[in-house]
Structure formats: C-alpha cells, structure tokens
Write a protein that binds this DNA or RNA. Structure first.
Lengths: 339, 339
DNA sequence: TTGAAAGCGGTACCAG
DNA sequence: CTGGTACCGCTTTCAA
C-alpha cells in the first residue's frame, strides 16, 4: 500500500513513482523531485517481499553450520559469519544463519531453502567426502560456494581455499629452522579440508629435510592425552605437533602441561588456523592466521555473480600469516614426550 | 509457476490445489489424495516470497548484534543464536543475523528491517539507557523482545531476564560460606543489564553479612591488571571478585596469575554468566550458568505471539546454576592483592 | 514523459 | 466440494 499512497498523494501513477524511486531515466526531473520529497515525507520503505517476489530473488544468502546449533561458537564460523555479513550489509541483503546435523534433515533444510526460493545462494562448509549437499546443489544448479576444500576436482564448483602449500611452507620452515626433523600433522579425517591440510604438510616437510606423520583425531574431549601418550610410544622422535584445525594445538598444550611438560620446550605446538583460544591458551599458541573473513566476504560476491549469471573471476591466492607466540621453539636434544 | 503446474497436470483449479495442500477441510478426500501425490511427484515446494507477500508476514525473526561483526564471537550471542535457531527451525522460520554499531546506521538498519517487512519480530540485546531502538520499536508498535533488562519499568515491553536476586543469593551465599566479607562486583556501566546485576549483588550481599563495592569496567584489553592494582590500593580488604559478564572473571584470573598470584587462594573469582572461556581458563572459573538458550527459544515464541496479536503469558522465572570450578575458595587471612 | 495492464506465486472470499 | 476472481505490493513491458 505504499507506492500507491505516494501515487495518490501526488496524483501520479504507481508506475511513475516506481520508476522515479528506482532511479530510471525516463522520468522528468520535476516529477522525480516531487516524488522523492513525498517519499521522504512519508518515510517510504519498499515492501521487500513484494519486490523479491516480482524480481524472483530472495535478496538473501544462507549459511548452514553443520552440527548442533552450538556449532555457532566455533571460531571458524564466527569468522565466516563476520566476513559474510560485512559484505551483505553493504548490499543490503539478508543473512540467514542456520545449523543442521548431517543427515536427511540437513538435506531437507537445503531443499526448502533452495526450492522455496528463500536464499539466492549458499555457503557450504565442512564438506565431507561424497557430500550429498554438493550433489544436490549441483543437480539443482543452485548458486553455492564451498568453503574450505572440495573432494572432487570438479572445476565447475567454486571452492574457496587458502594456499595450503604456502601455509605448509611457513609452518615447516619455522619448525625446520628450530631444528625439528620429525613432526606430526594432527586433525580429523572426516573433513576434506583437514585431510588436505595434513597432506600438504606431509608433502612439504621433506623439502625442509623433515618428515611428517599423519595422526587422526576424533574431536572427543580428553582425546589429546591419549594421543600424546600414543605419540610418545609409537613415534618417540616426534618433536613438534601441528594441529590442523581449531583447538587441537591448544588441546595438546593443555595435555602436556597436565603432565608437567612445557609446550614449546618439551614439544613444539603450532596451530594451522587461529582463534581466541590460541591467544588465551597457556602458553599462547603460535598459529597460522587464515584470512577467513576476507574469504567469506568474497564468497558473497561470488554467490551474487553466480545468481546473476555472471562469470566468476579468477580467485585470489589466499595466504596465511604466522602469529608467533610462545608454544614453539628449538627441538629438544632428546624427546621429552613421556606423557 | 508451481501451484499452476499441479493444477494443470490434474485439470483442477489453482484454488483447489492451494486448499488441499494448505490442509483445508473443504476438499474431497479423493482429490486431496491426487493433489498430494502429484505434489510429491513433482517435489513441490511453495514459493515462500509469494506466500509471505500474500500473508503479510516475513516468516523470519531477526537478531541484531550490537557492535562489530566480530561480536558474533561473544559467547553470549552464540547462546542466543543457538536458542533462537533451535526454536525457529521447528517452525520453519528464517533467522536473520546481523550486527550494527550503535548510532544512526544501527537505527537505519532497524527501520529497513521493520518497514521493509523483512522480519516479523526482533530480539533486542545489550540495551543501553535511553536506547533509541526501543523508542523506535515501541513507536512503530513492532514485535520485539528485550534480552537482558530494560531501563524503563514499562510493563508493555517484554523483557526477558534471569532472576537476578536468586543469582546474587547463590553467588553471595557461596562467598559468605567461604568467609569472605568484602567483595567487588565488576562490570561495564554502559549496559542496563550489567548495571542491574551489580545492583543485585550490592543489595543481596548485606543479607549474607558482606558488603559489595561497585567497580566499572570499560572492556579494554589489559584493563584487568590496572583494575586489580587499583583494587589493591583503594580496597585492600576485597577478597573476592564477581565479574558480571563474560571474560571479566577470566581476565582477572589471568591478571592475577601474571603477577604470581593464585586465583582462588589469593583472591576468589566468580563469573556471573558462563562460557567456554571459563572452562578453559587456568584455573577453570567458577561461574553461574545462565539459561540463555532457553530464554532465546522462549523469545521466539513470544515474538510470534506478539506478531499474531496473542496475549503473552506470564514469563517463567529463569534461574542460574552454579558451575563450581577452581577459581574460588576460602577468604585469605590477609589480603594478598598486591598486584 | 506518463499510465494502463499484466504478471510474480500464492491465499481467501464468494458464488455455484 | 470446486472454481472464478480479487488482491498482497512491486516491476516491467507496451501504448499513448
């Protein structure tokens, strides 16, 4: 009832008012001014639902966080949300945040979002091998961007990833300088992104005269002590640990300290990916800061281009930046891993 | 183009299809079945924008986090988001998450949300004295729920708060049992909710034979050391500190440890409100866990009732639950606060 | 430069 | 029980 009000008040047609406010050129300067003043006067704000229905767009982007709603607290998603929103805000688009545990209900949510036209694009995170979400979105030809890494090498799906080789080089370089020669890359095997990070470390380590062993985590609480013990037994020559996702490095540091070992001296700990937990940890954890927020902002741009059928430019090369803190140092003369 | 497709395929009218799918009673069982099967077959999902336009609803609830987008990482908002989403999911409503720094742009965002009909209701947090958002929402008669506390005693605005007296009793009771007699309530003065928490502590403390002094924080990093020093000088008889919002207690604990003092022995530290930071702190912080997620879920229910013009029931009495950890203990014989 | 009219995809009122 | 019709508020041809 709003364009109509302005139109009536001014004795003009709805059409003209719509065009004037829409910034079209085919409205005389004088009527445009009258219309703009009147719109200002009654504080006109267009009904978004009407506009969206007509335009066939949702003017919204969605993020479905995998896991329980509590996953919102994952510092990684916090960064994704912050980055995405900062860009969406500029475009005056809505940001839909949801969560869903992997499974049929997750897929149902995706269907409702896509087929109900509730969003124009989706940011997909924590991709798993053979992820049904990707299969669905590809089949539906719906704009989506994968955050992290894709299992397939399908060039048609846009995947935002950091330069893992460069990241591995930074980390390996630092550890090699400290005289380490055998390191452990620790992370879950369930997520494609994490698996690839471990692979990168294993590939790059030899270039620095080191070898990296692959250790799988489940993410259970209290797992780190067990892992540390196992490492001490099975790989007593490991003098440094790289946690490839949040909390792993901090978890090891805590486990070490619980046994009277000093992280950074007894065993170096570095985190691939940074968060507040690293800053607050004791000792603060040396970590590779990732440009997650920038990437999320970029993801929004890409989604809008996909929506509008525009080509997607070459992706920037996102690189990490090492935050040197206190959890790493020279390799101990002989391993102190006796947890 | 979807109801129409079903209608055409079946040689029925759009009206009938709409009613059958809408679960109205005035459709014959046989046609309803045909329609449902066909809908199933073509995997019909209604266009939400069309439905929303027609119904004059947004089918969405919004949360505007005050501050920069990074405020998403505030554990308090994480809980609010988790609680709100868990309920919205059941109703199949959208959850819009945004952030805005207090000021004109914040109010502009609210106007666009409200007047653009982009949400049906808003959760308002971190209310400040004379908050322009509340004035606006009240004037616009737009469904909103205040989370935390309202400055005015206006009974017309729904405000979700915990039972602060009960909370203060739990905390004061524990500290009194430990033999403390003078405690500090520390928190920012900018937020109504925090001010009220401090007031509650000051009011309740005497009942337990204690006195509580009010200490204002600004929230700057590194502030805690200064505050601890000031406390030691100005109030050397204070033996316990209650942080009324996230990170304050943990911040003090860190500051104490940095000076070789042992939180829990030299000075007790308790947090009014719990988060992971307390769990991970060294030592883990004793904290009053608040039912924030429950409250947020309830907020959604209330917003929907307000939207639909239904009366809002009496609010539950939300109480806190003390998580006993290691940051508090017997009052020291003589104050050790010499930071 | 302006306006009438046809949608966008639903829902709801009324007549049959 | 079913279908015609108007309408939600806006955008966009197409004529005038």
């Amino acid at each position: 009832m709003s364009l109509k009000i302005i139109a009536n008040n001014l004795g003009l047609s709805i059409t003209t008012v719509s065009r004037a406010l829409g910034g079209h050129s085919d409205v005389s300067e004088s009527t445009r001014l009258r219309i703009e003043r009147e719109a200002q006067r009654i504080a006109y704000v267009p009904n978004e639902m009407a506009r969206r229905l007509q335009k066939g767009r949702a003017d919204a982007i969605g993020l479905v966080v995998p896991g329980s709603p509590l996953s919102f607290e994952d510092p990684y998603f916090v960064d994704v949300m912050a980055g995405a929103w900062s860009r969406l805000e500029n475009y005056d688009l809505d940001f839909l945040v949801m969560s869903a545990t992997p499974g049929p209900s997750e897929l149902r949510l995706y269907r409702r979002l896509v087929e109900g036209r509730r969003v124009d694009g989706l940011i997909v995170t924590r991709v798993r091998p053979d992820d049904p979400r990707l299969a669905y979105l590809a089949e539906a030809r719906f704009p989506h961007v994968v955050f992290g890494a894709t299992p397939s090498n399908d060039r048609s799906v846009v995947s935002l990833e950091i330069d893992r080789r460069q990241a591995a080089e930074i980390i390996c370089g630092r550890l090699a300088d400290f005289g380490h020669s055998r390191i452990a890359a620790v992370g879950p095997d369930g997520m494609t992104c994490m698996v690839k990070r471990k692979q990168a470390l294993k590939e790059i380590a030899p270039r620095f005269g080191m070898t990296a062993i692959d250790v799988a985590t489940t993410g259970e609480p209290g797992e780190f002590e067990r892992l540390a013990t196992r490492l001490a037994v099975e790989h007593p020559d490991v003098t440094a640990i790289v946690g490839v996702c949040d909390h792993i490095a901090a978890g090891f540091a805590t486990a070490f300290r619980a046994h009277g070992l000093n992280p950074g001296e007894a065993c170096s700990v570095i985190s691939f990916g940074d968060s507040l937990a690293n800053v607050f940890a004791d000792p603060p954890i040396t970590a590779l800061q990732l440009p997650t927020r920038d990437m999320a902002a970029h993801a929004v741009d890409i989604l809008l281009r996909l929506r509008d059928g525009l080509p997607v430019d070459e992706l920037p090369n996102w690189v990490g930046h090492l935050m040197v803190r206190a959890s790493d140092g020279p390799a101990p003369k002989q391993t102190a891993l006796r947890a």
